[in-house]
Write a protein that binds this DNA or RNA. Sequence first.
DNA 1: CTGTTAGCGCCTTCAT
DNA 2: ATGAAGGCGCTAACAG
Lengths: 336, 336
Amino acid sequence: MPTIKDVARQAGVSTMTVSRVINNSGYISPATRERVERAIAELDYLPNALARSLRFKQTRTLALVLSDITNPFFTTVARGVEDAARAQGFSVLLCNTDETDAVEREYLSILLQKQVDGVLLVPAREDSTAAALLQSRGVPTVILDRRLRGAKVDSVRGDSEQGAYEVVRHLIGLGHRRIAVLIGPLSVSTAADRVAGYRRALREAGIPVDEALIVEDSFSAEGGYRATLRVLRDEPRPTAIFAGSNFIAFGAFRALREARLRVPEAISLVAFDDLPEGWLMAPFLTAVNQPAYEIGQRATALLLDRLAGRGAPTPQEVILPTELIIRRSSAPPCAS
Amino acid sequence: MPTIKDVARQAGVSTMTVSRVINNSGYISPATRERVERAIAELDYLPNALARSLRFKQTRTLALVLSDITNPFFTTVARGVEDAARAQGFSVLLCNTDETDAVEREYLSILLQKQVDGVLLVPAREDSTAAALLQSRGVPTVILDRRLRGAKVDSVRGDSEQGAYEVVRHLIGLGHRRIAVLIGPLSVSTAADRVAGYRRALREAGIPVDEALIVEDSFSAEGGYRATLRVLRDEPRPTAIFAGSNFIAFGAFRALREARLRVPEAISLVAFDDLPEGWLMAPFLTAVNQPAYEIGQRATALLLDRLAGRGAPTPQEVILPTELIIRRSSAPPCAS
DNA sequence: CTGTTAGCGCCTTCAT
DNA sequence: ATGAAGGCGCTAACAG
């Protein structure tokens, strides 16, 4: 790997002159510039970003810390992040935490050491201290997808409360009154918000909340499966299930199939988080869609604005609207 | 951000001593070590990875260059990569190229500048020069998912030829003789290999190949849609379609639905690349599944072995078996 | 066992 | 318009 010294020697100038050419700074005679540029081309010289970062104190690298890139929602968020970052010459370090506090902390330490310029964080828990730590170290941070308790940080997320409210209202409109909600850990704000939306819809319709119908498990297919089994034992059995995430819905659907309950004839099933368009051979599931790509994009724009000193003085909170997509998995309750 | 100097001052030792504590190198009296460690804790000191990388000439960072993280196959690959990398203390820089040569080159330049230790590359084209460039610069590289013409590089991929062969043989076994194959650009090796597998299956069954039934478009839903329209105009119409990727299958399915052709009654549809388990509410599509996670994991292991000097002397080529999953989208041709 | 010197590759500052 | 010195934060090599 040639260094700036090699180029300087080849061009018969000092390293400083080469540096000026590279950075387009200061005055340079056309003749020398020409010579330097030829030397650069001849040697296939590429500046060492580590050395530059060490001097400039910026790496032009962001980190995206999320629970699991395998979740299509986060995949799309990641794509939005990457596109927005690349457009401004930033690279993205990807970190999967599996919702684990320990892994989150481990990654944070690495990211601080690597001197990333900013972090996009999906906190593992609502009271995660990660954001505070980053802030205290002077690393701009944007929270994605979730709320953080008492944090003074920029954040971008979909409107979980309103989205849940709308889909539950849809069920109520169809005539359902016993509606179960299966959700991930309530320590995650999206879980809490979706339950809050659920409660609001019931309250508004004058339907009393049966706490037994609110089942907290994990945001996974297994969680959805377990929660469904539990809810099916209830008497009288709920006529509709609101799955708090796409994965929960998958698990719920499997449990329903095994219990020989047809959807939507025997029981309705709706979910939070749609799958990317075109993925479903026969779109079936009524779902609340979040603008995942835009969440990633907006969050990154916010972060890059801060890095450029263009940030607003106070923390921004961007809440993007969701969209209710009614398909065939929701129908009026059966007459029984 | 405190530096090693601050720690040294606080502990009343030289920076070298601090360095020794950090790296567990050389001899240090327990007493000093203790003092240094306390200073580190008090200051919340974290070593600057940029400076260390500059010295050590290694960044403990890999790059994953792929076409689109939004594709569930690559998502899973990425997860495999990340897990394997993290297990050895490496971070992963994610780069989406959208199959574009220009973006691929742009990223390579950035990655070289950032001094990544190794690259996992899904080349945009079979004759991409990216790998050669990386090798010439001394950056270990592993090719993922695809073959590269005449490259002396490690590579890990699924067995496209055999997978295609098997699924087409499955169709032939059902009685199909006019089988269309819809595929992405033949300049991508997976496309070429899947067509090769298709041809082998037909040849073996003594069925002449009708070149009109081999349609090259893009590896996308739109490509699948367009290709299907074309193939449906053929006379006599094919009784089965082999979609060369999951996205192609999605587009094909939409075109078939619009043409009011029921699957599998009117026409069978099979695909390469399954969707992650549990994603489908009602698994329907007969598909060839590739071990995506393992591809990512194995490739990363190979790369890290090389970095550690544990690599084999000659380039390794790992070809992992695929698995045919027969579901309800394939059936015997209708009597017509 | 610990400290000093020098340098990784680059750029800011200040001369010339 | 160009160059020399010094330093970003860290560590290998050599003292002592």
